[in-house]
Write a protein that binds this DNA or RNA. Structure first.
Length: 439
RNA sequence: GUGGUUGUAGCUCAAUUGGUUAGAGCGCCGGACUGUGGCUCCGGAGGUUGCGGGUUCAAUUCCCAUCAGCCACCCCA
Protein backbone atom coordinates (compact mmCIF):
# COMPACT_ATOMS: atom_id res chain seq x y z
CA UNK A 1 0.00 0.00 0.00
CA UNK A 2 1.58 3.27 -1.12
CA UNK A 3 0.08 5.40 1.62
CA UNK A 4 -3.18 6.33 3.21
CA UNK A 5 -5.26 9.44 3.72
CA UNK A 6 -4.02 11.92 6.31
CA UNK A 7 -5.28 11.30 9.85
CA UNK A 8 -8.80 12.60 10.22
CA UNK A 9 -9.37 12.74 6.46
CA UNK A 10 -11.50 10.30 4.54
CA UNK A 11 -11.38 8.39 1.28
CA UNK A 12 -14.92 7.93 0.07
CA UNK A 13 -15.32 4.54 -1.61
CA UNK A 14 -18.44 4.17 -3.78
CA UNK A 15 -20.63 2.70 -1.05
CA UNK A 16 -19.48 5.42 1.35
CA UNK A 17 -20.03 8.14 -1.19
CA UNK A 18 -23.50 6.74 -1.72
CA UNK A 19 -24.27 7.46 1.93
CA UNK A 20 -22.75 10.92 1.69
CA UNK A 21 -24.77 11.69 -1.43
CA UNK A 22 -27.90 10.45 0.32
CA UNK A 23 -27.19 12.80 3.22
CA UNK A 24 -26.58 15.77 0.92
CA UNK A 25 -29.73 15.05 -1.13
CA UNK A 26 -31.85 14.86 2.00
CA UNK A 27 -30.35 18.04 3.43
CA UNK A 28 -31.08 19.93 0.23
CA UNK A 29 -34.57 18.56 -0.08
CA UNK A 30 -35.64 19.52 3.44
CA UNK A 31 -33.98 22.95 3.20
CA UNK A 32 -35.92 23.51 -0.01
CA UNK A 33 -39.19 22.70 1.76
CA UNK A 34 -38.46 25.53 4.17
CA UNK A 35 -37.70 27.98 1.39
CA UNK A 36 -33.95 28.07 2.03
CA UNK A 37 -31.59 28.99 -0.81
CA UNK A 38 -28.15 27.43 -1.20
CA UNK A 39 -24.96 29.47 -1.21
CA UNK A 40 -21.25 28.73 -0.86
CA UNK A 41 -18.00 30.57 -0.29
CA UNK A 42 -14.27 29.84 -0.57
CA UNK A 43 -12.78 26.98 1.44
CA UNK A 44 -9.68 29.14 2.00
CA UNK A 45 -10.11 32.42 3.87
CA UNK A 46 -7.98 35.12 5.49
CA UNK A 47 -6.89 33.91 8.91
CA UNK A 48 -8.05 37.04 10.70
CA UNK A 49 -11.76 36.51 10.07
CA UNK A 50 -11.52 33.57 12.49
CA UNK A 51 -9.21 35.14 15.06
CA UNK A 52 -11.41 38.25 15.11
CA UNK A 53 -14.37 36.15 16.14
CA UNK A 54 -12.79 33.60 18.43
CA UNK A 55 -9.47 35.02 19.54
CA UNK A 56 -5.91 34.03 18.64
CA UNK A 57 -5.97 30.79 20.65
CA UNK A 58 -8.08 29.30 17.88
CA UNK A 59 -5.04 29.26 15.58
CA UNK A 60 -3.88 26.08 17.30
CA UNK A 61 -6.93 24.34 15.91
CA UNK A 62 -6.74 25.70 12.38
CA UNK A 63 -5.14 24.53 9.18
CA UNK A 64 -3.39 27.82 8.52
CA UNK A 65 -0.32 28.89 6.57
CA UNK A 66 1.24 31.79 4.72
CA UNK A 67 0.45 31.72 1.02
CA UNK A 68 2.93 32.61 -1.73
CA UNK A 69 1.72 36.20 -1.67
CA UNK A 70 2.54 36.50 2.01
CA UNK A 71 -1.10 36.36 3.13
CA UNK A 72 -2.02 34.59 6.35
CA UNK A 73 -4.77 32.17 5.36
CA UNK A 74 -6.70 29.23 6.83
CA UNK A 75 -8.91 26.43 5.61
CA UNK A 76 -12.35 27.35 6.90
CA UNK A 77 -13.15 25.75 10.27
CA UNK A 78 -16.68 27.14 10.24
CA UNK A 79 -19.02 28.93 7.89
CA UNK A 80 -20.31 31.79 10.01
CA UNK A 81 -17.68 34.45 9.17
CA UNK A 82 -18.03 33.74 5.47
CA UNK A 83 -21.80 33.85 5.80
CA UNK A 84 -21.63 37.09 7.76
CA UNK A 85 -19.49 38.72 5.09
CA UNK A 86 -21.72 37.60 2.23
CA UNK A 87 -24.95 38.60 3.94
CA UNK A 88 -23.59 41.94 5.14
CA UNK A 89 -22.27 42.89 1.70
CA UNK A 90 -25.73 42.66 0.18
CA UNK A 91 -27.94 42.98 3.23
CA UNK A 92 -29.60 46.15 1.98
CA UNK A 93 -30.78 44.50 -1.20
CA UNK A 94 -31.92 41.20 0.24
CA UNK A 95 -35.52 40.68 1.24
CA UNK A 96 -35.80 39.77 4.90
CA UNK A 97 -35.93 37.34 6.44
CA UNK A 98 -32.99 35.80 4.63
CA UNK A 99 -33.11 32.00 4.55
CA UNK A 100 -29.83 30.57 3.33
CA UNK A 101 -28.15 27.21 3.65
CA UNK A 102 -24.80 25.75 2.65
CA UNK A 103 -22.98 22.42 2.81
CA UNK A 104 -19.36 23.42 3.31
CA UNK A 105 -16.47 21.08 3.96
CA UNK A 106 -14.87 22.33 7.17
CA UNK A 107 -11.40 21.68 8.59
CA UNK A 108 -9.91 21.72 12.04
CA UNK A 109 -6.52 20.61 13.24
CA UNK A 110 -7.38 18.49 16.24
CA UNK A 111 -6.81 14.95 17.37
CA UNK A 112 -9.54 12.88 15.86
CA UNK A 113 -11.94 10.56 17.59
CA UNK A 114 -15.07 8.73 16.59
CA UNK A 115 -17.57 11.25 15.24
CA UNK A 116 -14.93 13.91 15.14
CA UNK A 117 -12.50 14.14 12.27
CA UNK A 118 -10.22 16.83 10.92
CA UNK A 119 -12.54 17.36 8.00
CA UNK A 120 -16.29 17.07 7.70
CA UNK A 121 -19.26 18.38 5.81
CA UNK A 122 -21.80 20.41 7.65
CA UNK A 123 -25.28 21.58 6.77
CA UNK A 124 -25.45 25.22 7.81
CA UNK A 125 -28.87 26.84 7.90
CA UNK A 126 -29.21 30.47 8.90
CA UNK A 127 -32.14 32.82 9.14
CA UNK A 128 -31.43 36.56 9.27
CA UNK A 129 -33.65 39.54 9.89
CA UNK A 130 -36.34 38.16 12.17
CA UNK A 131 -36.17 38.57 15.93
CA UNK A 132 -39.47 36.89 16.76
CA UNK A 133 -39.75 33.41 18.27
CA UNK A 134 -41.44 31.85 15.25
CA UNK A 135 -38.08 32.12 13.51
CA UNK A 136 -36.56 30.05 16.32
CA UNK A 137 -39.30 27.47 15.99
CA UNK A 138 -38.83 27.44 12.23
CA UNK A 139 -35.14 26.66 12.48
CA UNK A 140 -35.55 23.96 15.13
CA UNK A 141 -38.35 22.45 13.08
CA UNK A 142 -36.09 22.36 10.04
CA UNK A 143 -33.44 20.44 11.94
CA UNK A 144 -36.01 17.97 13.24
CA UNK A 145 -37.55 17.50 9.82
CA UNK A 146 -34.13 16.62 8.46
CA UNK A 147 -34.08 13.78 10.99
CA UNK A 148 -37.57 12.70 9.97
CA UNK A 149 -36.63 12.77 6.31
CA UNK A 150 -33.91 10.23 7.07
CA UNK A 151 -36.49 7.98 8.71
CA UNK A 152 -35.48 8.81 12.27
CA UNK A 153 -38.28 9.14 14.80
CA UNK A 154 -38.71 10.76 18.20
CA UNK A 155 -37.51 7.45 19.63
CA UNK A 156 -34.23 7.86 17.73
CA UNK A 157 -33.38 11.54 18.17
CA UNK A 158 -34.15 14.23 20.70
CA UNK A 159 -34.03 18.01 20.36
CA UNK A 160 -32.84 19.55 23.62
CA UNK A 161 -33.86 23.18 23.79
CA UNK A 162 -32.98 26.03 26.10
CA UNK A 163 -32.69 29.80 25.99
CA UNK A 164 -29.92 31.97 27.33
CA UNK A 165 -32.40 34.72 28.20
CA UNK A 166 -34.21 32.25 30.46
CA UNK A 167 -30.98 30.94 31.91
CA UNK A 168 -29.80 34.48 32.53
CA UNK A 169 -32.98 35.40 34.39
CA UNK A 170 -32.93 32.25 36.50
CA UNK A 171 -29.25 32.61 37.33
CA UNK A 172 -29.71 36.25 38.23
CA UNK A 173 -32.50 35.27 40.56
CA UNK A 174 -30.18 32.63 42.02
CA UNK A 175 -27.71 35.35 42.91
CA UNK A 176 -25.23 35.07 40.06
CA UNK A 177 -23.92 38.51 39.18
CA UNK A 178 -23.58 39.63 35.58
CA UNK A 179 -19.81 39.34 35.91
CA UNK A 180 -20.09 35.67 36.83
CA UNK A 181 -22.66 34.74 34.19
CA UNK A 182 -20.00 33.44 31.81
CA UNK A 183 -18.48 31.23 34.52
CA UNK A 184 -21.91 29.83 35.30
CA UNK A 185 -22.62 29.12 31.62
CA UNK A 186 -19.33 27.31 31.30
CA UNK A 187 -20.02 25.16 34.35
CA UNK A 188 -23.52 24.30 33.12
CA UNK A 189 -22.13 23.43 29.70
CA UNK A 190 -19.78 20.92 31.31
CA UNK A 191 -22.20 19.66 33.94
CA UNK A 192 -22.91 16.44 32.07
CA UNK A 193 -19.33 15.58 31.32
CA UNK A 194 -17.56 16.43 34.57
CA UNK A 195 -17.76 15.46 38.19
CA UNK A 196 -19.90 17.94 40.10
CA UNK A 197 -17.20 18.42 42.70
CA UNK A 198 -14.72 19.78 40.17
CA UNK A 199 -17.19 22.25 38.75
CA UNK A 200 -18.22 23.44 42.19
CA UNK A 201 -14.57 24.00 43.03
CA UNK A 202 -14.09 25.99 39.84
CA UNK A 203 -17.09 28.17 40.57
CA UNK A 204 -15.92 28.65 44.12
CA UNK A 205 -12.52 29.82 42.95
CA UNK A 206 -14.28 32.13 40.48
CA UNK A 207 -15.83 33.78 43.51
CA UNK A 208 -19.29 32.27 43.85
CA UNK A 209 -20.68 31.30 47.24
CA UNK A 210 -21.71 27.75 48.04
CA UNK A 211 -25.40 28.62 48.30
CA UNK A 212 -25.31 30.25 44.86
CA UNK A 213 -23.40 27.34 43.36
CA UNK A 214 -26.04 24.95 44.59
CA UNK A 215 -28.71 27.05 42.91
CA UNK A 216 -26.74 27.14 39.67
CA UNK A 217 -26.76 23.35 39.54
CA UNK A 218 -30.46 23.34 40.40
CA UNK A 219 -31.13 25.59 37.40
CA UNK A 220 -29.03 23.37 35.14
CA UNK A 221 -31.02 20.35 36.31
CA UNK A 222 -34.36 21.73 35.09
CA UNK A 223 -35.93 19.33 32.58
CA UNK A 224 -39.30 19.61 30.94
CA UNK A 225 -41.72 22.46 30.53
CA UNK A 226 -43.61 22.00 33.84
CA UNK A 227 -40.36 22.19 35.81
CA UNK A 228 -39.34 25.26 33.85
CA UNK A 229 -42.64 27.02 34.47
CA UNK A 230 -42.46 26.15 38.17
CA UNK A 231 -38.99 27.68 38.34
CA UNK A 232 -40.20 30.78 36.53
CA UNK A 233 -43.11 31.35 38.90
CA UNK A 234 -42.54 34.41 41.00
CA UNK A 235 -39.47 35.42 39.04
CA UNK A 236 -39.20 39.20 38.66
CA UNK A 237 -38.17 38.83 35.00
CA UNK A 238 -40.61 36.08 34.06
CA UNK A 239 -41.08 37.70 30.64
CA UNK A 240 -37.61 36.47 29.69
CA UNK A 241 -39.14 33.07 29.03
CA UNK A 242 -41.85 34.34 26.67
CA UNK A 243 -39.90 33.75 23.43
CA UNK A 244 -38.91 30.22 24.41
CA UNK A 245 -42.44 29.30 25.47
CA UNK A 246 -43.86 30.74 22.24
CA UNK A 247 -41.34 28.78 20.19
CA UNK A 248 -42.23 25.59 22.07
CA UNK A 249 -45.93 26.23 21.41
CA UNK A 250 -45.17 26.68 17.74
CA UNK A 251 -43.28 23.39 17.58
CA UNK A 252 -46.26 21.70 19.24
CA UNK A 253 -48.57 23.26 16.67
CA UNK A 254 -46.38 21.92 13.87
CA UNK A 255 -46.74 18.47 15.35
CA UNK A 256 -43.08 18.21 16.34
CA UNK A 257 -43.54 18.55 20.09
CA UNK A 258 -42.76 14.87 20.64
CA UNK A 259 -39.17 15.48 19.56
CA UNK A 260 -38.54 18.39 21.89
CA UNK A 261 -37.16 18.32 25.44
CA UNK A 262 -36.75 21.46 27.50
CA UNK A 263 -33.27 21.04 28.94
CA UNK A 264 -31.56 23.92 30.73
CA UNK A 265 -28.19 22.20 30.73
CA UNK A 266 -27.90 23.19 27.08
CA UNK A 267 -26.04 26.48 26.74
CA UNK A 268 -23.62 25.82 23.83
CA UNK A 269 -19.96 26.52 24.31
CA UNK A 270 -19.84 29.68 22.26
CA UNK A 271 -20.03 33.07 23.86
CA UNK A 272 -22.04 34.73 21.11
CA UNK A 273 -25.41 33.02 21.54
CA UNK A 274 -28.03 35.44 22.81
CA UNK A 275 -31.31 33.53 22.92
CA UNK A 276 -32.61 30.13 22.01
CA UNK A 277 -30.00 27.38 21.97
CA UNK A 278 -30.58 23.76 20.98
CA UNK A 279 -28.81 20.52 20.21
CA UNK A 280 -29.92 17.28 18.58
CA UNK A 281 -28.75 13.97 20.06
CA UNK A 282 -29.41 10.33 19.39
CA UNK A 283 -31.92 9.14 21.96
CA UNK A 284 -29.49 6.66 23.53
CA UNK A 285 -26.86 9.40 23.81
CA UNK A 286 -24.11 7.06 22.72
CA UNK A 287 -22.88 9.45 20.04
CA UNK A 288 -21.81 13.06 20.00
CA UNK A 289 -24.26 15.83 19.19
CA UNK A 290 -25.79 15.56 15.73
CA UNK A 291 -26.64 19.21 15.42
CA UNK A 292 -26.28 22.43 17.39
CA UNK A 293 -27.41 25.99 16.98
CA UNK A 294 -29.21 28.98 18.34
CA UNK A 295 -29.86 32.69 18.15
CA UNK A 296 -26.89 35.04 17.79
CA UNK A 297 -28.45 38.46 17.40
CA UNK A 298 -25.35 40.61 17.86
CA UNK A 299 -22.82 38.55 15.96
CA UNK A 300 -23.17 39.93 12.43
CA UNK A 301 -22.58 43.44 13.75
CA UNK A 302 -19.70 42.30 15.93
CA UNK A 303 -18.03 40.77 12.88
CA UNK A 304 -18.15 44.15 11.18
CA UNK A 305 -21.35 43.53 9.31
CA UNK A 306 -24.97 44.56 9.53
CA UNK A 307 -27.05 44.93 12.67
CA UNK A 308 -29.63 42.26 12.04
CA UNK A 309 -30.99 39.56 14.33
CA UNK A 310 -29.99 36.09 13.22
CA UNK A 311 -29.99 32.46 14.16
CA UNK A 312 -28.65 29.28 12.68
CA UNK A 313 -27.46 25.74 13.18
CA UNK A 314 -24.79 23.37 11.96
CA UNK A 315 -25.29 19.65 11.37
CA UNK A 316 -22.28 17.49 10.53
CA UNK A 317 -22.23 14.47 8.27
CA UNK A 318 -20.05 12.27 10.49
CA UNK A 319 -22.21 11.59 13.54
CA UNK A 320 -25.33 11.60 11.38
CA UNK A 321 -23.79 9.02 9.05
CA UNK A 322 -22.87 6.80 12.00
CA UNK A 323 -26.40 7.00 13.33
CA UNK A 324 -27.96 6.16 9.95
CA UNK A 325 -25.66 3.17 9.54
CA UNK A 326 -26.41 2.04 13.08
CA UNK A 327 -30.15 2.17 12.46
CA UNK A 328 -29.98 0.51 9.06
CA UNK A 329 -31.16 3.70 7.39
CA UNK A 330 -28.24 4.03 5.01
CA UNK A 331 -29.33 3.67 1.39
CA UNK A 332 -28.65 0.43 -0.46
CA UNK A 333 -25.27 0.75 -2.12
CA UNK A 334 -24.51 0.39 -5.80
CA UNK A 335 -26.21 2.07 -8.72
CA UNK A 336 -28.32 -0.43 -10.59
CA UNK A 337 -27.82 -1.20 -14.22
CA UNK A 338 -31.08 -1.13 -16.18
CA UNK A 339 -30.03 -3.37 -19.03
CA UNK A 340 -27.06 -5.65 -19.72
CA UNK A 341 -26.45 -6.38 -23.39
CA UNK A 342 -24.83 -9.75 -24.13
CA UNK A 343 -23.30 -10.81 -27.44
CA UNK A 344 -23.25 -14.52 -28.23
CA UNK A 345 -20.43 -14.45 -30.80
CA UNK A 346 -17.76 -11.90 -31.71
CA UNK A 347 -19.76 -11.08 -34.85
CA UNK A 348 -22.61 -9.92 -32.59
CA UNK A 349 -20.47 -7.42 -30.71
CA UNK A 350 -20.94 -4.46 -33.10
CA UNK A 351 -24.70 -5.02 -32.97
CA UNK A 352 -24.56 -5.14 -29.18
CA UNK A 353 -22.60 -1.89 -29.12
CA UNK A 354 -25.12 -0.19 -31.38
CA UNK A 355 -28.03 -1.32 -29.25
CA UNK A 356 -26.28 -0.45 -25.99
CA UNK A 357 -25.65 3.04 -27.23
CA UNK A 358 -29.25 3.50 -28.33
CA UNK A 359 -30.35 2.48 -24.84
CA UNK A 360 -27.89 4.88 -23.26
CA UNK A 361 -29.15 7.69 -25.49
CA UNK A 362 -32.61 6.85 -24.25
CA UNK A 363 -31.38 7.49 -20.71
CA UNK A 364 -31.00 3.92 -19.52
CA UNK A 365 -28.02 2.65 -17.52
CA UNK A 366 -26.52 0.04 -19.81
CA UNK A 367 -23.46 -2.19 -19.69
CA UNK A 368 -21.94 -4.96 -21.76
CA UNK A 369 -18.94 -7.24 -21.42
CA UNK A 370 -15.73 -5.41 -22.31
CA UNK A 371 -13.93 -8.66 -23.12
CA UNK A 372 -15.07 -11.64 -25.18
CA UNK A 373 -16.75 -14.09 -22.81
CA UNK A 374 -19.13 -17.04 -23.06
CA UNK A 375 -22.79 -16.10 -22.79
CA UNK A 376 -23.15 -17.74 -19.40
CA UNK A 377 -20.34 -15.63 -18.07
CA UNK A 378 -21.89 -12.48 -19.44
CA UNK A 379 -25.21 -13.23 -17.77
CA UNK A 380 -23.39 -13.93 -14.54
CA UNK A 381 -21.79 -10.54 -14.86
CA UNK A 382 -25.22 -9.01 -15.50
CA UNK A 383 -26.39 -10.45 -12.19
CA UNK A 384 -23.34 -9.24 -10.37
CA UNK A 385 -23.94 -5.74 -11.70
CA UNK A 386 -27.49 -5.79 -10.40
CA UNK A 387 -29.04 -5.57 -13.85
CA UNK A 388 -32.80 -5.99 -13.91
CA UNK A 389 -32.88 -7.05 -17.53
CA UNK A 390 -30.57 -8.47 -20.14
CA UNK A 391 -30.67 -8.48 -23.91
CA UNK A 392 -29.06 -11.38 -25.78
CA UNK A 393 -27.98 -10.83 -29.35
CA UNK A 394 -26.96 -13.90 -31.35
CA UNK A 395 -26.65 -14.83 -35.00
CA UNK A 396 -29.96 -16.69 -35.04
CA UNK A 397 -31.80 -13.78 -33.48
CA UNK A 398 -30.29 -11.33 -35.89
CA UNK A 399 -31.28 -13.49 -38.83
CA UNK A 400 -34.87 -13.17 -37.67
CA UNK A 401 -34.55 -9.43 -36.97
CA UNK A 402 -34.94 -10.02 -33.27
CA UNK A 403 -33.15 -9.96 -29.94
CA UNK A 404 -33.97 -11.84 -26.76
CA UNK A 405 -35.12 -9.70 -23.85
CA UNK A 406 -34.69 -11.35 -20.46
CA UNK A 407 -36.22 -10.38 -17.14
CA UNK A 408 -33.42 -11.52 -14.86
CA UNK A 409 -35.41 -11.45 -11.64
CA UNK A 410 -38.44 -13.18 -13.11
CA UNK A 411 -36.36 -15.70 -15.02
CA UNK A 412 -38.49 -15.11 -18.10
CA UNK A 413 -37.49 -14.15 -21.61
CA UNK A 414 -39.11 -13.35 -24.92
CA UNK A 415 -38.02 -12.48 -28.44
CA UNK A 416 -38.47 -8.84 -29.37
CA UNK A 417 -38.21 -7.29 -32.80
CA UNK A 418 -34.97 -5.32 -33.07
CA UNK A 419 -36.79 -2.11 -33.97
CA UNK A 420 -39.12 -2.47 -31.01
CA UNK A 421 -36.44 -3.01 -28.34
CA UNK A 422 -36.44 0.52 -26.96
CA UNK A 423 -40.20 0.55 -26.57
CA UNK A 424 -40.18 -2.89 -24.96
CA UNK A 425 -37.43 -1.96 -22.50
CA UNK A 426 -39.05 1.35 -21.71
CA UNK A 427 -42.32 -0.41 -21.04
CA UNK A 428 -40.42 -2.72 -18.70
CA UNK A 429 -42.52 -5.61 -19.89
CA UNK A 430 -39.91 -8.25 -20.55
CA UNK A 431 -41.60 -11.60 -20.34
CA UNK A 432 -45.00 -10.07 -19.75
CA UNK A 433 -46.17 -11.47 -23.04
CA UNK A 434 -44.67 -13.94 -25.44
CA UNK A 435 -43.62 -11.33 -27.93
CA UNK A 436 -44.97 -10.69 -31.38
CA UNK A 437 -44.03 -13.21 -33.98
CA UNK A 438 -43.31 -11.78 -37.35
CA UNK A 439 -44.80 -13.57 -40.33
C1' G B 1 -1.21 18.98 22.96
C1' U B 2 -1.73 15.01 27.61
C1' G B 3 -2.87 10.01 29.31
C1' G B 4 -4.70 4.99 28.28
C1' U B 5 -5.58 1.00 24.79
C1' U B 6 -5.47 -1.84 20.12
C1' G B 7 -2.81 -3.04 15.26
C1' U B 8 -2.37 -10.51 11.39
C1' A B 9 -5.06 -11.04 3.57
C1' G B 10 -9.83 -6.20 0.57
C1' C B 11 -13.43 -7.56 5.15
C1' U B 12 -14.40 -10.57 9.82
C1' C B 13 -11.16 -13.45 12.63
C1' A B 14 -7.53 -17.95 13.95
C1' A B 15 -2.36 -19.44 15.05
C1' U B 16 -0.59 -24.24 21.97
C1' U B 17 3.79 -21.93 27.56
C1' G B 18 8.17 -18.04 22.04
C1' G B 19 8.97 -23.36 17.83
C1' U B 20 9.04 -25.78 10.88
C1' U B 21 6.39 -23.06 4.97
C1' A B 22 1.11 -17.64 9.40
C1' G B 23 -4.58 -20.45 8.36
C1' A B 24 -10.21 -20.18 7.68
C1' G B 25 -14.81 -17.92 6.09
C1' C B 26 -16.63 -14.00 3.04
C1' G B 27 -15.10 -11.20 -1.16
C1' C B 28 -12.06 -11.16 -5.80
C1' C B 29 -10.14 -13.96 -10.40
C1' G B 30 -10.65 -18.50 -13.18
C1' G B 31 -12.46 -23.65 -14.43
C1' A B 32 -16.44 -27.45 -14.51
C1' C B 33 -20.37 -24.59 -18.16
C1' U B 34 -17.95 -22.58 -26.19
C1' G B 35 -26.79 -19.65 -27.13
C1' U B 36 -28.62 -18.81 -21.11
C1' G B 37 -27.46 -16.17 -15.04
C1' G B 38 -28.05 -16.43 -9.20
C1' C B 39 -26.73 -22.55 -6.72
C1' U B 40 -22.90 -26.22 -6.24
C1' C B 41 -18.00 -28.25 -6.73
C1' C B 42 -12.78 -27.43 -7.88
C1' G B 43 -8.59 -24.28 -8.49
C1' G B 44 -5.90 -19.51 -8.11
C1' A B 45 -4.18 -14.75 -6.72
C1' G B 46 -3.70 -11.94 -2.44
C1' G B 47 0.65 -11.18 3.96
C1' U B 48 7.75 -7.67 4.80
C1' U B 49 1.97 -10.13 11.01
C1' G B 50 1.41 -1.30 10.67
C1' C B 51 6.76 0.45 10.17
C1' G B 52 11.83 0.26 12.61
C1' G B 53 15.02 -1.54 16.23
C1' G B 54 16.18 -5.02 20.46
C1' U B 55 16.25 -9.84 23.44
C1' U B 56 16.61 -15.11 21.82
C1' C B 57 19.12 -20.94 18.67
C1' A B 58 14.10 -19.26 17.23
C1' A B 59 9.39 -13.48 17.70
C1' U B 60 2.58 -12.72 15.10
C1' U B 61 3.84 -13.91 20.46
C1' C B 62 8.53 -10.65 24.94
C1' C B 63 10.88 -5.39 25.25
C1' C B 64 11.71 -0.26 23.19
C1' A B 65 10.54 3.45 19.79
C1' U B 66 7.44 5.29 15.98
C1' C B 67 3.00 5.59 12.93
C1' A B 68 -2.22 4.70 12.70
C1' G B 69 -7.16 3.46 14.90
C1' C B 70 -10.09 3.72 19.34
C1' C B 71 -11.21 5.86 24.48
C1' A B 72 -10.79 9.81 28.07
C1' C B 73 -8.97 14.90 28.69
C1' C B 74 -8.44 19.76 25.87
C1' C B 75 -11.75 21.90 22.47
C1' C B 76 -16.27 21.88 20.27
C1' A B 77 -16.90 26.82 15.23
Amino acid sequence: MPSQALPGFRDFYPDELELRAHIFRTWREVARRYGFEEYDGPPLEPLDIYTAKSGSEIVGQLYNFTDKGGREVALRPEMTPTFARMVSARANGLRKPIRWFSIPQLFRYERQQRGRLREHFQLNCDLVGEAGPLADAELIALSIDVMRAFGLTERDVRARVSDRRVLGALLAAAGVSAAHLGDAYQAIDKAERSRPGELAAQLRSAGLGDAVIEKVFAVAAIRGRPALEAALAGLPDAGAAAPLLTALDALDAMGLGAYVDVDLSIVRGLAYYTGTVFELFDAGRTLRAICGGGRYDGLLLALGGVDLPALGFGMGDVVLGELLRERGLAPPARAEVDVFVAAVTPEDVPHALALAHELRDAGLACEFALAAQPLGRQLKQADARGARRAIVIGPDDRARGEVVLKDLAGKTQAPVRRDAVLAAVAAGDAGAHTGSRDG
